[in-house]
Amino acid sequence: MDLDFQVILDNFTYFMIGRYPNGPLGGLGLTMYLAVVSCILSFFGGLILGLLSLSRYAVIRYPVNLFINTIRGLPLLMVIFWMYFLLPALMGKTVPESQTVIMGLTVFTSAYMSQIVRAGIMGVPKGQTEAAISTGLKGWQTMLYIILPQGMRNMIPSFVNQFVSLIKDTSLAFIVGVSELTHVGTQVNNRTMSYPTEIFIFIAAVYFVLCFAFTSFSRWLEQRLAWRKSI
């Protein structure tokens, strides 16, 4: 089979940034935008849901856990569809597709992140909490200064996995017509007709490089953040 990657070079800017700056951002640029914004939002979403799911008040704990388990029981595509149809109805106005996708990704990833947060917090020995409250620290101070900093360390590897999934999951935005990388790939393919192999090899390679770069970066960060290697 002869591969001709000229089609990639011809459409390179389009793959990278879509029609930007003459039109909306697309391609890899949009993929990264979706991933980064959803990543930041679901970090906090996961933290909040995780903390609430450990609340000592059942009236908070039960509905939060119900929500988390419901989301975890749905395919991501379903969550994105729901956001796509639900969000405009709820807000009473049209919402840009990319924002409904960000919401879908955030809700979905937050639910998984909350489980990581939960496990990370529960993995900190009970003696740490006891020591902290014994000096008179309040519950939230104990969480903030003692438990979370230690739990966070256990959470980082799982966070990274979750975010790598998130980067790949942005490709589902294609279903609601958001012109991220995968969508741009299908567009170019439809237009040129004769190079599907080249195009999708290229798209796959871009996802791989992106995820690989992210994993390597976080490994580097993890080592820098390690306060003592021995614990």
């Binding site: 003696g127 006891e130 014994s134 306060w227």
Partner: peptide
Amino acid sequence: GFVFQQFNLYPH
């Protein structure tokens, strides 16, 4: 003040 058998110092 409370002192534990396992010390429970904050490792971080």
